[in-house]
Design a protein around this nucleic acid. Structure first.
Lengths: 117, 117
DNA sequence: GCCGTATAAAACCTTTAAGTTAAATAACTG
DNA sequence: CAGTTATTTAACTTAAAGGTTTTATACGGC
């Protein structure tokens, strides 16, 4: 998976409007106008956000009369998940997640609780 | 988890230099100069990237003589993972991931390996 | 063919991101 | 204290992001 690809995906996700659009699309395919409705923002602005999401592969656009329906394509999110997995052990072992870690590794009862400090 | 927080995390991750820095820090704490070495980029540029990572909570900085060691803090990545989980079912059911989905839901043993084509 | 609706494109503005170089700060070393 | 190393700050440049308004395109209904 190319670096550029992750660049596009992460920067698409870095905007709250775009994440809200994805959340809406998780409920089902809809039109640009309906997507735009919750935002105090012009239509063209939404069109631009959709372009960013499309470039990241996160949405697919159809064509139905004068509407261009958008639907979610979550495949890129799986790539993000896969990238994240490399770091899983780090958040699992971080201070406030130590308990989760202990559950996961299933050590015996008397391993010492020593951590880096 | 506030929207701003995810904004910061995602935009910190949207740059390949910063992701490379995180990858390096996964190997252990190190200094700014050593972090800068692999990149054809001035020191101050790296300092800026570190500021972005720090603002996102992804690194922690120490102080040791004239060095300012950086270490990874992956806790924000867990927030990303949690956010992603909302979309898990979408990538699992998407066309080209159908096989994985079938494995996961534990259908009977003779589902063939057919994929879209 | 013309009108209304849905969407996109163009042109523009403002802010922020990412880099640069040069100067400043901080800490060790002799 | 002067010099060297590590890092940050300041000032600046360039380009991209995110918004605007105005204009164009595409389609369905009359």
């Amino acid at each position: 998976m190319s670096s550029d690809r992750l660049d596009n995906i992460f920067s698409a996700l870095a905007d709250p409007t775009r994440r809200a659009i994805l959340a809406r699309l998780a409920l089902g395919t809809t039109t640009v106008t309906e997507l735009a409705e919750p935002f105090r923002m012009s239509g063209p602005a939404v069109t631009k956000h959709l372009k960013v999401l499309e470039r990241a592969g996160l949405i697919i656009r159809g064509r139905e009369a004068q509407w261009r329906p958008c639907s979610l394509d979550a495949a890129p999110l799986k790539e993000v998940r896969d990238w994240l997995e490399h770091y899983r052990r780090f958040w699992e072992t971080s201070f406030d997640r130590l308990d989760e870690y202990l559950q996961e590794v299933q050590t015996n009862g008397d391993h010492d609780g020593q951590d880096k400090n």
